[in-house]
Design a protein around this nucleic acid. Structure first.
Length: 289
DNA sequence: TACCCGTGGCA
DNA sequence: TTGCCAAGGGT
């Protein structure tokens, strides 16, 4: 299996994108911000928001000192705005419980709001150069193909995948950290979900899926996520109004975004329950302070 | 475990 | 045009 290391690392050295959170001067906080923003969101859309965010809040304490609603506003249209709230909460926890410094241990990272198994491993690996299996959708797909001979991984991360990732992890922490980001980059640029460019793949001769003739995925199709008409769409429309207003918004403004008043009220209640919206007075709302 | 949570680009 | 998909986490 170690025969995969050299070609993947060489490919990464020659082909890696020049992303700001990979720059030597990127702080652990910058890496953490990028990881929150990149959860389910493409790099291209993250870049401008990331730059603005770090200019405005260069440290966890700087973000924690501002209102959570400002984080939600600055999040813009990245989607899943609860991530902005969680990043603000993580910054507060870092200020209050870690002396303002992003913790380096996987366990301490995992305890932060919005940090799950992937993000904890990613920050520990990318920012602190530790040895961790980093299993994101790209890495899982690369291993599913190269190791298991399957076009796509299972819906949820399995114990077998963790075993595979750990078995393939180089021994040296620094090499492991580069390997982790290199496999991820390979999945993002070459071993893509829709139309992998196997001709450019550094491990095509070792790929189990290719050796098997690149068989199509078997089993049930992944659940397509419908969006039109869902509460999520209504929440998005409501929050867009609140983001663009720089103060409180009367109910009448919110009523314009969706015809169905029952669904509209349910969506607004959900936003309030999530802490994304704050009721100021009967029929008046704003982003949380 | 399965489902909920945004948004936009692309084949 | 429309379904698929994008560096997941929380419950």
């Amino acid at each position: 299996m170690e025969n995969l290391h050299r070609p993947v690392l060489a490919w990464y050295s020659a082909s890696a994108r020049d992303l700001p959170w990979r720059a030597p001067e990127a702080t652990p906080w910058a890496v953490m911000v990028s990881e929150f923003m990149l959860q389910q969101t493409p790099v291209k859309r993250v870049l401008p928001v990331y730059e603005e965010w770090l200019r405005r809040w260069p440290t966890p304490a700087a973000l924690a000192a501002d209102a959570p609603g400002e984080a939600v506003r600055a999040w813009g249209r990245l989607g899943y705005p609860r991530r902005a709230l969680r990043l603000h909460a993580a910054a507060t926890a870092i200020r209050d419980e870690h002396g303002g410094e992003v913790p380096s241990s996987h366990a301490a990272l995992l305890a932060l709001p919005g940090v799950g198994e992937y993000t904890a491993a990613a920050v520990a690996s990318f920012a602190f150069r530790q040895r961790h299996a980093v299993l994101d959708t790209n890495v899982r797909r690369v291993f599913a193909r190269a190791v298991d001979g399957q076009e796509y991984p299972a819906n949820a991360t399995t114990a077998a995948e963790r075993r595979t990732a750990n078995a393939l992890l180089p021994d040296e922490p620094e090499t492991a950290a580069t390997w982790a980001v290199a496999v991820m980059e390979l999945g993002a640029l070459v071993c893509t979900a829709r139309s992998p460019e196997c001709g450019r793949c550094p491990i095509r001769s070792d790929c189990a899926w290719r050796q098997a003739g690149s068989p199509p995925h078997q089993g049930p199709a992944r659940r397509g996520q419908t969006y039109a008409g869902t509460d999520r769409q209504v929440r998005g429309k409501l929050l867009a109004v609140l983001r663009e207003a720089h103060d409180s918004v009367p109910q009448a403004e919110l009523d314009k975004v969706w015809e169905d008043s029952v669904q509209r009220a349910r969506a607004l209640d959900g936003l309030v329950a999530d802490g994304l919206v704050e009721p100021v007075a009967p029929g008046v709302y704003r982003l949380p302070r």
